[in-house]
Amino acid sequence: MRECFYGTSRFSDFAARTGLSDAVVATRLKHLSGMGVLERRPYVEPGQRGRFEYHLTERGRGFFPVLVALIQWGGAYVQEGDGVVQLTEIRTGQRVRITASGADGRALAPEDIAVQPRRRPDGSAQRP
């Protein structure tokens, strides 16, 4: 998923950038496509056979805040210094940060949030 957000779309680039075997890359791309997170689009390079590119679907793009949060957490707690990559807004050059916020925009800590079961259409509670 990370590589998709970084702009990778072709099988050979996924394998090269991740260092994974072709078999592992093929399995993961098939799984993500099957989940509806990626869609396969055919392309043909001149003089080559047809292949597929992999692009994020709307469902896949919905994973973006999760990825940013993981990058942010890794930079703070796993990598030395401030992490391997820094995410910045193209328009302003300002650093991107993910936070949980209330309806008024205030940043919330874990202790500020209650976890409640969702209700089914019949009114019964689902298990959290």
Rank of each mutant, 00 (worst) to 15 (best):
G93Y: 12
R28P: 02
F52Q: 14
L70C: 02
G7S: 02
S21V: 13
R49V: 14
G34H: 13
E39L: 10
Y54T: 12
G102C: 05
D82M: 13
R10G: 04
L32I: 13
A107T: 13
L87M: 02
A26N: 05
Q79T: 07
S33T: 15
F64G: 04
G60R: 01
R127L: 06
R118M: 00
Q48N: 06
A15H: 05
R119A: 11
G123T: 14
I98F: 12
R127S: 12
Q126C: 04
S21K: 15
I71G: 03
Q72V: 00
I113S: 05
T8N: 01
F11P: 06
L70H: 03
A15F: 09
L87D: 01
G19M: 15
S33R: 08
Y77F: 12
V84G: 03
S9Q: 10
V68F: 08
A15P: 02
E45V: 11
Q79C: 07
S21T: 15
Q126P: 02
R2T: 03
F11Y: 14
I113P: 00
G19D: 09
T8L: 02
S33I: 08
D13R: 14
L38G: 04
R40K: 13
S12L: 14
G19A: 13
A69M: 07
I98Q: 11
A103H: 06
V44S: 07
R40G: 11
D82S: 14
P110A: 13
A100F: 11
G7V: 02
D13H: 15
L108N: 03
Q48K: 11
V115M: 05
E89I: 04
G60I: 04
D22P: 06
V37D: 04
A114R: 07
D82C: 10
P117Y: 02
V44N: 07
G102M: 01
G83I: 08
R119L: 08
L70P: 00
L87T: 00
P121Q: 12
V96Y: 03
A76R: 15
S12R: 15
R28I: 14
G34V: 13
C4A: 10
A100H: 08
S101R: 10
A107H: 12
A107I: 11
G7Y: 00
L32A: 10
S124H: 13
T18C: 03
P117I: 01
G93H: 13
G75F: 09
A23V: 14
G62M: 01
G123C: 09
P128H: 12
G93K: 13
E3W: 10
Y54F: 15
I113A: 09
M1N: 07
F63D: 04
G50N: 05
A15E: 12
G47E: 11
A107M: 09
K30V: 05
F14P: 02
M1R: 05
V25L: 09
I90Q: 03
T57F: 01
E58C: 03
A100M: 10
Y54P: 02
V85N: 01
V96W: 06
A15N: 03
R106V: 09
G83N: 07
R17F: 09
A16Q: 11
H55P: 01
E39R: 13
P42R: 07
